[in-house]
């Protein structure tokens, strides 16, 4: 599972390079010329107010949207560079090994927890079952592959503390467990880049501390890059190595947590623009307090 860095095609290229990414929906510019890099073995956070375009960046990266303009390069440590914007949606996780989770959890809720993790290893198992024929006749090759898949699932279940509930229907898990299961499921695809869309949303402080530990564990022990969208600043500031700030689809800041925290542009974006002064003072005040609440 460790990255064989020596075989990497270009050892100096970042794991993910986003260049001039622009996404328009009709007249609406959701992302406007955004460029940033995400490194191997680092947690890169994308933050910004609601509607800033964070999820849209993920959707472009994982092939759900075709970017209007821009180049998205993923340098797979073993297999070389992929141009994500040219790939079919389902090929990005399959070939380029980019996995993601969703802002509103998307589990297979009527299937068991274990099955969720086995489905995540679909491509590997399909090959082992010789596209069903070997599986149909129960050949040993397939049986071994399935046992291995279960072992990988068990490993991640153990990591997220769900081993006991492996046979539950995923939909019956409490909310926090569902979030962690979704992370475990995307890790079962054995990605090189994991994109997490607000993994701490709706978690209580204890759960969110657990989440911090899980994410740093993934970064340190599995040597992959993480891309993290998060509103919870306690998570972001504590574990990120690098933060990208978006506002109205534009990148307004980029750097390590301390730099970003003290960047006047970021403070302005979160606390309100100067233009607010043109509004009646009460309204501006309301707006400002409203926005700061969201932090």
């Amino acid at each position: 599972m460790s990255a064989l860095r020596s075989e990497r095609v270009d050892p100096n290229a970042p794991l993910l390079g986003v260049e001039h990414l622009t996404m328009r929906f009709g007249g609406l510019v959701a992302i406007d010329d955004v460029s940033f890099d995400a490194e191997d073995k680092k947690i890169t956070a994308i933050i910004g107010p609601n509607g800033a375009g964070k999820t849209t960046v993920f959707n472009c990266l994982t092939g759900f949207y075709k970017p209007t303009v821009g180049r998205l390069t993923l340098n797979h440590p073993r297999k070389g560079p992929y141009l994500l914007e040219r790939m079919e949606g389902y090929q990005i996780p399959q070939k380029a090994a980019v996995a993601r989770t969703f802002q509103n959890i998307r589990l297979f809720s009527q299937m068991s927890v274990l099955e969720n993790l086995i489905v995540a290893q679909h491509n590997k198992l399909m090959e082992a079952s010789a596209f069903t024929f070997a599986g149909l006749f129960g050949l040993p090759r397939y049986r071994h592959a399935e046992a291995e898949a279960v072992e990988l699932a068990r490993y991640w279940l153990n990591r997220v503390g769900l081993e006991d509930r492996a046979d539950w229907d995923a939909g019956n898990l409490p909310y926090g467990d569902q979030r962690r299961l979704e992370i475990a499921r995307s890790m079962c695809t054995e990605p090189v880049l994991l994109c997490l869309d607000e993994p701490a949303a709706g978690l209580n402080p204890r759960e969110s501390a657990d989440l911090n530990r899980l994410l740093t564990f993934i970064r340190d022990e599995h040597n992959i890059g993480l891309l993290l969208i998060e509103h919870d600043m306690s998570v972001v500031m504590e574990i990120s190595d690098h933060i990208v700030v978006l506002d109205y689809g534009r990148k307004i800041s980029d750097g390590n947590p301390d730099e970003v925290r003290n960047d006047p542009a970021v403070i302005r974006a979160y606390l309100g623009e100067e233009e607010d002064e043109e509004l009646p003072p009460e309204v501006a005040e309301d707006l400002a307090s409203d926005k700061s609440d969201k932090r």
Binding site: F64, F102, H122, F131
Partner: peptide
């Protein structure tokens, strides 16, 4: 078998399936 599980997963959530690299 993987294909059968994939069918059921598709029934549950097609978008999640795509994000796991299933065609």
């Amino acid at each position: 078998l993987p294909i059968g599980r994939a069918w059921e997963a598709l029934r549950e959530d097609e978008i999640a399936c795509r994000s796991l690299g299933m065609n």
